[in-house]
Write a protein that binds this DNA or RNA. Structure first.
Lengths: 252, 252
DNA sequence: GAACTACCTTGACTCAAATCAAGGCTGCAT
DNA sequence: ATGCAGCCTTGATTTGAGTCAAGGTAGTTC
């Protein structure tokens, strides 16, 4: 059975081969997420000039690796990315999933080395923002400087959310929270909040949430039995948002 | 039995009532940790001018609370602080411990509201750095701007370390890692790396590491039995650094 | 210095998630 | 179409940390 991916027509199509190289920040339909600046059009043009748009990454291709020299941060334009660290004993800790309009790579600033690796979960296009140019432009444009401080701060609060989730919540609550997070982020980019395709594997979800694959799989089965979700491999349909919120144990 | 607190004379005395209000950034002995800038003395003076030094906080007094308006970031001058969030069901998640020279409050930038609360673990003095002034100064001083980006990035990598610890490591490994982290940070400020007094309670340690008090206590007992640490309430003496590293399971 | 409180430790028991094991799907390559 | 490899699911069993319970210790107040 086939499921429609998006309910909002052709806003952002998560299929390969539709990557518009001519897009610029001024007309990018993600700029309300990516750069919610009250930028003067002149400012946008300056920003646009420093941004490099390269050819799309294929699934499982790396954007950068832990230890690489840090030169740029990246905005996801289409597709999805994961950031992860490899622990001393070789296991993988996923530190974040990044969807269109979201920025990654900021952990590399502190040491001029990327502190994590970034890999495409599916065919993905990114905008590269060279950091030295961004710094110079920030010094000249107070709103941009402010905005970038805010982006970094948001990464910190997101990490703290995850810390709390890992430290205090059960397997059910963790998976439910992730589903709600993806749902919310989808609706921000005008995609369906209730129906979507997960770009990551169960292993990735487990590595993000501090759970094993088996546990993630069991939670999905449980949610399906409770008629909170319909799960068909990577296709997710949220049947009962309130039930999901209750399962996530989030205060509302 | 009494234990000397510091091995380096009167560098930083963790006892109350020795707080020098006349300190400025130029002569502060923490500036190699707090602001490792190759700042011109003129630059230091400008920075110094925006920094406010208020009277010390008493133990368990709040510096700010979750939801307060964000106005400033803070540098710890003496004592120790903890940052924490309260979960929807009233439990506490400690997101970080902050020692002299370390900066806290950066999670408030994203929403202009503090995303966590900060409380003194013992009598503590802080330097308040008003954020709007810092922004203005950053736009004028590239090294300061760069430095502040790096500080925020460091907070991100620290959070990612904690995420990995919570997600992948056993109780033994978590407690051992925290002891090593405190040891390292102590030696950076010329204090003993092997002997120190924990400013936080077992409950705080548990809330930071995602463990219960009982588990933290049992780990300390185990470490003592293995002659890795000597634990006398809050006094810690590391007897076997290599054993501790092995227990933390950190690659070297 | 007695009493109180907050903090810490230890033991016995329980339970949620990990581990171990096996089998089923899916989609790609031949 | 067939075979293969990676991914996902389900069941049985184990285990590390949580929970419950009780008692000890240190520091503070009166």
């Amino acid at each position: 059975m086939t499921v429609r991916l998006a309910d909002a027509g052709d806003h952002i199509v998560l299929k390969p081969c539709i990557h518009d190289y001519q897009v610029n920040c001024g007309n990018c339909r993600l700029n309300s997420i990516c750069l919610p600046l009250a930028l003067e059009s002149d400012d946008i043009e300056q920003l646009d000039n420093i941004i490099q748009r390269s050819k799309p990454l294929q699934k499982s291709q790396h954007l950068y690796r832990e230890g690489d020299e840090f030169k740029s941060v990246f905005a996801v334009r289409s597709g999805a990315m994961k950031a992860y660290k490899t622990t001393d004993d070789g296991r993988e800790q996923v530190t974040g999933f990044y969807f269109p309009g979201e920025i990654l790579g900021m952990d590399g600033i502190s040491n001029n080395l990327h502190a994590s690796s970034a890999k495409a979960l599916e065919t993905a296009a990114v905008c590269e923002i060279p950091f030295t140019s961004l710094e110079k432009l920030s010094a000249m444009m107070p709103t941009l400087q402010r905005h970038f401080f805010q982006l970094m701060s948001r990464e910190i609060t997101a990490d703290q959310q995850l810390i709390t989730l890992l430290s205090k919540n059960s397997a059910d609550e963790r998976v439910a929270s992730l589903m709600l997070s993806i749902s919310t982020r989808n609706s921000k980019r005008k995609l369906s909040a209730t129906q979507f395709r997960l770009p990551m594997s169960r292993v990735d979800i487990g590595n993000y949430l501090g759970l094993t694959v088996e546990t993630v799989s069991r939670v999905f089965s449980r949610m399906q039995k409770l008629e909170i979700l319909r799960v068909d491999n990577k296709e997710i349909k949220i049947l009962d948002v309130q039930g999901l919120q209750k399962m996530a144990n989030v205060g509302d």
